[in-house]
């Protein structure tokens, strides 16, 4: 018997698989397909203080081995999440969920976390300081170590639950942001969010996305994500949720060897709705193949010394 258990910021997970925020809604659509309790946990759709429609469409574009999205944090707002989504999550998921929160000001991040702080179904906060699709806030907090630290402190002040800061790859040195978040009290880091991208429609000779630029995700970004997880693992002592282009159980092991404690599955959920389930079911086989008894023991294994 192989052991897939890991511990993320003090909370035990039966396996490290976490469907990533923005690819899993609030779990409803996937709960009709399979039992969500097989997941380590899942990170729900980035939630802001007020309801948001997001950016105008088209906001999806095909790419080689990936996709662009410019959804722009569409969500029903924290009040509706509290009144409708949390009660439904209670019905479809018996484990603790990861609450992804977005914001346009330090005060907004803090306010959303405060409203969700006492929800027993929430095990962790994942704070998105890296959304590339909003014009103010979002990613700007994740590209400046000082602001990233300020958001971290403001959120930490509102909750006793573990706070995981979700980092942007669209920076010169991700380790500087990671270190600033750790120093400000972050309990964990998740990385990477999407990379800024653009595509042009040759027939219209204009960008495919109405928003012009969008977040690039999918298997094409995996090497970039692995490199960043590797670098951040060498810089900080707090756990990392690694993600970016994960398609298989092999990818999960690769992220963990680079230093991830848990692993997000993102865009793959959209093209294969059973992707997360398939990866979980395949993990024991892949562990046996590579002589891994316990996933917990391989975290950071690719590092020297």
């Amino acid at each position: 018997m192989v052991n897939t258990n890991v511990t993320l910021c003090g909370e035990s997970l039966s396996n490290p698989i976490i469907p990533a925020s923005g690819t899993f809604g609030y779990g409803r659509e996937f709960s009709e397909l399979y039992d969500l309790d097989i997941l380590g946990t899942f990170s729900f759709k980035g939630t802001t203080l007020l309801p948001r429609f997001g950016n105008p469409t088209p906001r999806i574009a095909e790419c080689p081995d990936g996709m662009l999205n410019s959804v722009g944090l569409q969500n029903p707002g924290v009040e509706k999440v509290l009144s409708e989504e949390i009660p439904n999550i209670r019905k479809i998921f018996r484990k603790k969920v990861m609450a992804n929160v977005g914001g346009f000001s330090i005060e907004e991040y803090a306010a959303v976390v405060k409203k969700l702080s006492d929800v027993p179904e929430i095990g962790w906060f994942e704070v998105n300081i890296s959304c590339p699709n909003v014009h103010s806030g979002g990613m700007s907090f994740g590209t400046d170590p000082r602001l990233a630290a300020e958001v971290t402190r403001a959120v930490k002040a509102e909750t006793d639950k573990p706070v995981i800061m979700k980092l942007s790859p669209n920076v010169t040195d991700i380790t500087a942001i990671a270190a600033a978040c750790e120093k400000a009290g972050a309990d964990g880091l998740s990385l990477i969010n999407t990379l800024m991208g653009l595509r042009v429609n040759l027939r219209t000779k204009k960008p495919v996305l109405h928003n012009i630029k969008g977040g690039f995700s999918g298997p094409a970004i995996k090497p970039v994500a692995l490199r960043m997880v590797y670098e951040v693992y060498e810089t900080v002592g707090i756990p990392i949720v690694g993600m970016g282009g994960v398609q298989s159980a092999e990818d999960v092991v690769e992220f963990m060897l680079c230093g991830a404690t848990a692993v997000g599955v993102g865009a793959q959920n959209l093209v294969d709705p059973y992707a997360s389930k398939r990866i979980i079911e395949d993990l024991p086989r892949v562990m046996k193949k590579y002589n891994i008894q316990s996933l917990n023991e391989i975290i950071g294994g690719a590092h020297h010394g």
């Binding site: 809604g25 759709k45 429609f53 469409t57 999806i60 999205n69």
Partner: peptide, 16 residues
Amino acid sequence: ERMGCGFGACMGCSCK
């Protein structure tokens, strides 16, 4: 509309 998933998860094809 241009879609990501086609089954309601990604919010790519929303309209007002």
